[in-house]
């Protein structure tokens, strides 16, 4: 295996140019949890995001947090949630915020693809179901904004070290791994169907 590819925030356009779909990367610096309502607030309600994420990273996730003393928090569990739910807003979101890394679960669509290409950003997948590992890669929760949204929707500003593995699903050329894979999967599915049908003619 080649050497670990680690991105550090703030991320610059040049940092992303040699990274392609299917690559595995890690993130050091800051990542902010940001999901459904936060996207809607920024795009539909035009409320400015209370955290500056230019050159930064967001994580589609609703974590489990344990409050500590003095307004400090501990990350207990933080698994990615289905990114597709944010698809509707993501082009505008990338454009407005200058975010460079969008991390979540599963693929995203055409809008995000365009956003990643035009404004130079990546969509990455953190393996889902690995929420405890992700939580232990958070060194500290440094800030919490829009707390009125409740624990899952709050913008939790996390300082992370080698957060990952992050698998690149959309790159700055606008290539989309899941969409490309789907074509392959459907072709192989049709082949599998033909093959199985030869053996299941039980109704005669």
């Amino acid at each position: 295996m080649s050497e670990k590819k680690i991105l550090t925030t703030p991320i610059k356009d040049e940092d992303l140019k040699d990274i392609h779909v299917g690559d595995i990367i890690y993130l050091t610096g800051h990542i902010v949890t940001c999901r459904d309502v936060a996207h809607r607030r920024l795009i539909e309600e035009k409320m400015p995001l209370p955290v500056d994420i230019k050159g930064g990273a967001i994580l589609h996730a609703g974590p489990i947090i344990k409050p500590l003393e003095n307004d400090k928090f501990q990350m207990v569990s933080v698994g990615p949630t289905t990114s597709m739910r944010m698809e509707k807003f993501e082009y505008e979101f990338i454009k407005e915020t200058g975010v460079k890394l969008v991390v979540g679960k599963g693929g995203m669509g055409e809008g995000t693809q365009r956003g990643c290409k035009e404004f130079k950003a990546l969509h990455c997948v953190f393996p889902a179901g690995c929420a405890v590992l992700a939580a232990t890669e958070v060194e500290e929760i440094e800030d919490a904004q829009w707390r009125d949204l409740g624990m899952p929707e709050t913008l939790w500003v996390c300082r992370v070290k080698e957060f990952g593995p992050l698998i690149v699903s959309i790159d700055t050329d606008g290539r989309n791994m899941f969409e490309e894979k789907k074509v392959e999967y459907n072709r192989r599915k049709d082949e599998a169907y033909e093959e199985i049908c030869k053996h299941v003619k039980f109704i005669k």
């Binding site: 569990s77 698994g79 179901g129 929420a131």
Partner: peptide, 8 residues
């Protein structure tokens, strides 16, 4: 760490 393995 005695935690649920998946958050869901």
């Amino acid at each position: 760490l005695d935690r649920p393995c998946c958050q869901d």
